[in-house]
Nucleic acid binder design. Sequence first.
DNA 1: ATCAAAACATAGCGCTGCTATGTAATGTGA
DNA 2: TCACATTACATAGCAGCGCTATGTTTTGAT
Lengths: 205, 205
Amino acid sequence: MARTKDPAVRSLLLDRAAHLLSARQPVTLRTLVAGTGVSTMAVYTYFGGMDGLWQALRQEGFTRLAARLAGVTMSADPVRDLAALGAAYLANALENPDLYRVMFDARFDLEDAGAADETLDRLVRAIDRAKTHGRFHGEVEPLELATQSWTIGHGLASLVATGPLPHQALTHGVPLLTALFTGAGDEPARCRRSVERGWGRLLPA
Amino acid sequence: MARTKDPAVRSLLLDRAAHLLSARQPVTLRTLVAGTGVSTMAVYTYFGGMDGLWQALRQEGFTRLAARLAGVTMSADPVRDLAALGAAYLANALENPDLYRVMFDARFDLEDAGAADETLDRLVRAIDRAKTHGRFHGEVEPLELATQSWTIGHGLASLVATGPLPHQALTHGVPLLTALFTGAGDEPARCRRSVERGWGRLLPA
DNA sequence: ATCAAAACATAGCGCTGCTATGTAATGTGA
DNA sequence: TCACATTACATAGCAGCGCTATGTTTTGAT
């Protein structure tokens, strides 16, 4: 008994926001709708305000990350796969640095808690796989090891994306993950080779 | 042949900014000077604008961090000391979460690059000490290991301060650092004991 | 004592997100 | 099919933001 929303408008606004973000142009209510033909009210009908737009943008960021991780093909070497997931995480963060910053920007009260859960779950499953392959010893808690891997990935991504460390520093991911996985029971030399293979093109800077 | 600046005004503004920040009240040009008796122009006289104030605030954050790290007393166990430095870093980040966020907030172009250098240097020296004690093997590059320790610390601090991980997750610091230092040559069981000692009160959540 | 220079106060500009108001479009019940 | 309630949408205007132009006052060197 009323007018319906047009999903295309919503996508249009999100796309334009992402474009402005990557073009390092300010994302404001007015710059957002400028040239789109829609009025500023559209932001309120579809997102309830700018905060809602940022939240939707974060969701988009996590969705894109999930897709990126899903693109990592599993191999016969589960530890390589773990490193490859880490590399994919970092690659995504550095290819969309602005979106990554939005995703982990403070000043949001985590109503979209669990947005990162899919990411973590994928890690957990990869670790489970390494366990069944006998690379990690039995006491390893997959969720804990996944959280620790995430900590390394996020720390690296954040320090590089935010400035304190140069891109070169991404190579630190190899010794960090190798140390972590070796501590989880993998054989050191073999572990390092696996991680290096998984880290892939992030290695030569 | 002119009027001189009053350092007290500068401190007053910085103090008030920190207060507003910790009180979770918006830090704006007008809220900053409200009730202080000084006018908005003061912010421009002493900081050149709000950006300058944020920059000064970051400097203050790093100064406070340096003081915190300086308060860690070295013991006979250098690996414990390394973990204690990590714990102090995290404790500082979580006691001044807003300031920590300002410190590592993106959208600043690193003109104050090197602000974090003192922190890193302290880590380097602690690692050097562990090397001379024979805890790490000779190929260990202190700067690299320091950067990797920082990555772990910042990753944890960021994920906890920004929301995705609960405070409980700080305990992950122990296995992470243990794995890293064990990989650097320390004997596993001894390393874990040292790290646990250094991690201290961050352990019981 | 003089006077230039800098600190300081005030007012106002263009921008921000947001909302109040009026209008046009549309899915639904009769 | 038609009327209407309901929602999308456009416009205008509000308070607040950072910043700057302007005029005044203070002050330190000559």
